[in-house]
Design a protein around this nucleic acid. Structure first.
Length: 646
RNA sequence: GCCCGAGUAGCUCAGUCGGCAGAGCGACGCACUCGUAAUGCGUAGGUCACCAGUUCAAUUCUGGUCUCGGGCUCCA
């Protein structure tokens, strides 16, 4: 039999007997690799280990612990889950079951309109472990579409996929037990692990409803989520990450640190900030104002409600009505709470005739808006119904757009960095199928946005056709301390509103021109950004943002007077300091201050009163210091607070 | 809005197979006056989310409503 030759990723080549498979290749390289292998990539395409390798191919063996290997594991586990569900609910229909970030899901329609309950997760897991124990092989088969439709005669979702796919052939995977009996079959491109015995480090995590093909007008299916990993240790690590995320949950921290809450008496999605949360928010807002002032923005204030005509012109009542609170009738007019600030800012622009000499005109407002979000989407401060945007609208001449976007993005990133967020990824959303304006305008705006990201040096992806109907946009995402991605800033170029409001300026040529408009929210919403910071810092806000920067604790009540003086001195120096009273044991008071995540706990006793010193217990350190001169501590605190502004 | 789950003291939760409810923490009071992550004792605090229904009796069972959580759709 003639040999074949394949090329490995390191450039070396290997000779194998004709008909050799990926599994044979892995085995020929090493025993360990053969055990770890879950699939191969042949000339760039993922394949089963059992597939024969073509002569001359480039082949990479995929192991379980790699991103692609985990995808294969997860997708294979989702098949096992669907198989388990059909064992437990004969007649269940299964739709799609892909691998997703950190796990997988599968969508089902149970017979007789049944729904899963939480208790079912354990039953499904048990059935899955049975299937894994049976070590069923994943057997790939190729069929014509007609055969596929025949195989899935009782699976309408699979049939729909085949019918809509319009492909020349379809492939299926059959799970076959040791005795060779035909098992459960699914429509699938693959690849899969060789057999179910390769799986096992998984957990079913949650239930959800999901619409068939993501369309809320179609059948609602039951979705089961799970996670799967290459080893028990990796699964355990993942579960620990989830636990860490829960510990950092801003809703939990908001209650523990007494920062904010959502009174049911006010209504869903409408938070109140308590004094400590409000202090941090005030520092954020003061900082934002100072930065905007230093960067050429003009401040405006606008009302919370406006007559319907304003939102008719802006297009909100046409395109955004479902997200608006209903109107109030007053003196024959209908007043709507504003869902966005832009129409108001446009009216400021239009208050008089504008000259090109005024452009770019940058209007800024911490503007509170109200949006009627559907109840199911509310999520702590991350998704609310009343929020304050650090909102800006920039009006500029066409030839200023590029430079303006470039400096704008640089400004955005600079501010985000000062809040300790430094890993950015952006997304450029481009012209959708339905759009207004000209292709030339769009191309120019997209190009300007792209250039600003190149200039800022941040990585970005292009979301083709994802722009709003009126404009392309950049969304800036940040990664937090535990690697989660959050969308914060957004920058949108708008062609629609300048036209709708008939905005003009007089150019150097003494004729009228239409300005370009750029919408920009930096934090996104102050509430949301506050929540992201809380989660990023796990509640231990940097000193400049901490509501209480130093807590002064007297050792006994004899030292309360001195503690008060120390706190007063710190406040006079511009810091946020509180003096305590000696009501409980010192240990208990220190513990409380630490749990409140106060950056500096100062303990003062006889020695400090005599020497004018403080004991310094730093939040991030387990070892307290003694006998630090107060003046010296003031300088340390000052340096700490200013470090964030460097 | 839809599916699943939850709602018991300020918080975290136990409990009642239908018979007028309990712990820890917190709050308050008294004692303790203390040098770096929980001093002791005591007191108060609950229409068991709300509204109906079944029942001799409902916090418990049934239905509805509201709120919260996890998803879907949507989005800052």
């Amino acid at each position: 039999m003639p040999d074949i030759s394949v090329t490995l990723p390191d450039g070396s080549s290997r000779q194998l007997p004709a008909g050799a498979t990926g599994a044979d290749l892995a085995a020929s390289i090493g025993r360990r690799l053969a055990l770890d292998a879950v699939a191969v990539v042949v000339d760039g395409s993922p394949r089963d280990l059992s597939a024969p390798l073509p002569d001359g191919a480039s082949v990479e063996v995929v192991t379980a612990g790699t991103p692609l290997g985990r995808q294969v594991l997860r997708h294979s586990t989702s098949h096992v889950m669907a198989q388990a569900v059909t064992r437990l609910w004969p007649g269940a229909r299964y739709a799609i079951g892909p691998a997703v970030e950190d796990g997988f899901y599968y969508d089902f329609e149970l017979p007789d309109g049944a729904h899963f309950s939480d208790d079912d997760l354990g039953r499904i897991e048990a059935a899955m472990r049975e299937i894994i124990k049976e070590d069923q092989r994943f057997v790939r088969e190729e069929h014509s579409p007609e055969e596929g439709i025949e195989i899935f005669s009782d699976q309408p979702y699979k049939r729909e996929i085949i019918e809509d796919g319009g492909e020349a052939g379809v492939s299926t995977y059959r799970n076959v037990g040791a005795s060779g009996e035909d098992g459960w079959v699914d429509l699938c491109r693959g690849p899969h692990v060789p057999s179910t015995g390769r799986l096992g480090h998984f957990k079913l995590t949650k239930l959800a409803a999901a619409y068939w093909r993501g369309d809320e007008h179609r059948q609602q299916l039951q979705r089961v989520y799970g996670t799967a990993w290459e080893s028990a240790a990796a699964l355990e690590e993942h579960m620990e990450r989830l636990a860490e995320a829960e510990r950092r949950d801003h809703r939990r921290l908001g209650a523990e640190l007494d920062l904010f809450h959502f009174p049911p008496e006010i209504g869903s999605g409408l938070p109140v900030f308590h004094p400590k949360g409000a202090m941090t928010r005030k520092v954020m807002e003061d900082y934002s104002r100072a930065e905007h002032e230093a960067n050429g923005y003009d401040f405006v204030y606008t009302p919370h409600i406006a007559k319907s005509t304003l939102f008719e012109v802006s297009g909100h009542l046409g395109f955004y009505k479902d997200n608006m609170y209903p109107p109030m009738e007053m003196e024959g007019a209908r007043y709507y709470p504003k869902p966005m600030n832009c129409p108001m800012h446009i009216l400021v622009y239009k208050s008089r005739q504008r000259s090109y000499k005024e452009l770019p005109l940058r209007l800024f407002e911490l503007g509170t808006v109200y949006r009627f979000e559907r109840s199911g989407v509310l999520n702590g401060l991350l998704r609310v119904r009343g929020m304050t945007q650090d909102d800006s609208h920039i009006f500029c001449a066409r030839e200023q757009l590029e430079a303006e976007l470039e400096s704008l993005l640089a400004f955005v990133l600079k501010v985000l960095r000062r809040f300790g967020l430094s890993e950015f990824e952006a997304e450029l959303s481009t012209r959708p199928e339905k759009f207004i304006g000209t292709v030339e305008e769009w191309d120019r705006a997209e190009e300007a946005l792209r250039a600003s990201m190149d200039a800022a040096g941040i990585p970005y992806k292009v979301a083709e056709g994802e722009g709003a109907f009126y404009a392309p946009k950049i969304d800036v995402h940040v990664r937090d301390a535990i690697g989660r991605r959050w969308q914060v800033s957004t920058i949108q170029v708008d062609f629609q509103n300048p036209r709708a409001f008939d905005m003009e300026y007089v150019g150097a040529d003494n004729t009228r021109h239409r300005p370009f408009m750029v919408h920009r929210a930096l934090f996104g919403s102050v509430e949301r950004f506050f929540a992201i910071l809380l989660e990023h810092y796990a509640g231990a806000l940097p000193t400049w943002l901490a509501p209480v920067q130093a807590a002064v604790l007297p050792v006994s009540d004899a030292h309360e007077g001195y503690a008060g003086q120390v706190a007063a001195t710190l406040r006079a120096e511009g810091f946020r300091a509180e003096a305590g009273v000696a009501e409980e044991t010192l240990g208990a008071r220190i513990r409380r201050a630490k749990l409140d995540k106060v950056p500096y706990v100062l303990v003062v006793g006889d020695q400090d009163v005599a020497a004018g010193t403080v004991g310094v217990n730093v939040r991030s350190s387990a070892r307290p210091e003694r006998g630090v001169a107060l003046a010296q501590f003031v300088e340390r605190l000052r340096a700490d607070v200013h470090a964030a502004h460097a």
